[in-house]
Computed example of a mutant assay.
Amino acid sequence: MSRAALAVLPLALLACGGNAAQPSDTVQASSAESSTAAPFAKTVMTQLDSPWAMTFLPDRRMLVTEKKGQMLLLSADAKQRRTVATLPVDSAGQGGLMDVVLSPDFSTSKRVYFSYSARGDGGTKGVVLARGLLDLQPGGERLRGIEVIFRARPFVEGDGHYSGRIAFSPDGRYLFFTNGERQKFTPAQDKSMTLGKVLRLTPDGKPAHGNPLVAQGFQPEVWSYGHRNLLGLAFDKSGNLWEQEMGPKGGDEVNLILPGRNYGWPNASNGSHYDGRDIPDHRPGDGYEAPKVWWNPVISPGGLMIYSGSMFPQWKGDAFIGGLSSESLVRVHLDGTNASKGDQWPMGARIREVEQGPDGAIWVLEDGGKGSGGRLLRLSAR
C-alpha cells in the first residue's frame, strides 16, 4: 500500500463530489468496442447516504465515508453499522468527507487516514488530510485522537476539484495525496501551490525527503504536477503508481505517475474547455507526460482499484474505475507501465468507489446523486 524511496522507484461535482452537473457530467460514454455483458452477479448489501469511499478492516468489517461527514463502521455482511466519527466538513458542491485508508501498520497502530473539505478564512475552502485511532472496543467503536496533519495550499473560493485521494507506498514509508486545482486552471502549473499536484508525504504529513522538484522552487511536498481533478490513486504489485483524473469536456485520463513529471493541465489535454475553446492535445515532444489511456466522450472517473484477487483471475493486475456520468464500471488492462482500455459495463447508477473485498469480490459504491440510490454493491463471479 505505500511508496518506495526515490532511488528505488520503478521506471466532476458528483463526478467530483457534489450534485450539480458539469458539462462533462452530462455526456454518456460510448465505447461500443469495449462494452460487454457483465460476467458478475450484483448483490445489494445496504443503502447509504451519498457515500464517497470505503476500506476493509482485517476482520472484514468496512469503514465507509459519507459526503455530509459521517464515517461508518459496517459489519462484514453490511447489516449492522455504527457511526465512528462525524467530521466538520464543508459539504457544499463537490465537498464532503472523502477518502479513507488504513495505515500500513493498522493491525498494531489502529491508525486511519482520511480526507475532507474544510472552510478557511474569508470564505475560502480546501482539502485537508487527517488521521485518528480506531477504537474497536465492542459497543464503543469510535475514531479517537483525530488530528489534521496536512492542508492544501492555498485555500481558495469555490466548491470544486478538491480531489483528496490517498495511497501508501508499498513499503509503508510514504503517503501520496492528491490536491485538485480547484477549477482554477493555473494552480496546476504554479510552483508556489500544492494545488493540481500529486504530493509525497511522510505518515506524519510532512514533506518526504528527496522529493524531486524542491530545487526548481516547487512546494517541498510536490511529486508531480499539471493535474486537474485527481479522483483515483493506487499502486500495482510492481510499485508503479497509477492515477486517474477528470478531463474537462472530454479527455478523462489514466496516468502513470512518475517523479517530477508535468502532466500538462491546463496547457495540454485531449479534451476541450466547456465553452468550446480548444486545448492543445498531448503530442510527442510537447514537454508534458501524456496519459496512458484517455476517453472522449468522458466516463467521469470516480475511485480507482487495482485488482489482485482470485475470484476473477482473468483480471488480476488490471485497474477498475467507477464511472459517474457514464454510470459504469470500467476495466483498464495494465501491462507493466503500459495500459489499454478493457471492458465497460453499464451499472445503471453513478459509481463513486471501487474496492476489492477480502475474498476477491469487487465492491462498489453508488454516490447517491441523480437518483443512483447510494447503495453498496458486491460483485461476485457468476
Rank of each mutant, 00 (worst) to 15 (best):
G360H: 09
L324S: 11
D105Y: 00
Q344T: 14
L365S: 07
P248Q: 14
G17M: 03
Q28K: 13
L258R: 15
V332S: 09
L304E: 09
G226L: 02
R200Q: 09
L304P: 06
G260K: 14
A76P: 00
K110A: 13
N270I: 01
L9T: 07
L129P: 00
G123M: 01
L324K: 10
G342L: 03
S103K: 08
P203D: 08
A152V: 13
L379A: 04
G122I: 03
D281R: 10
S117E: 10
E355A: 14
E289A: 15
A349P: 01
L379R: 02
R331Q: 13
S192P: 01
P297G: 02
R119F: 03
E147M: 06
R131V: 07
G172D: 02
G122H: 10
P291T: 02
P284Q: 03
L377S: 04
R165D: 05
V8M: 04
L379Y: 06
A21I: 03
G317M: 10
G348Y: 07
P297M: 07
K237Q: 14
V156Y: 07
L129A: 03
R173T: 12
V44E: 13
N229Q: 08
E147T: 15
D77P: 13
K184A: 14
F218V: 01
P259C: 07
R352A: 06
L13W: 05
P212E: 04
K68W: 03
T65W: 05
K184P: 04
D281E: 12
G160R: 15
L73R: 09
T55V: 15
W295I: 02
L376C: 07
L102W: 05
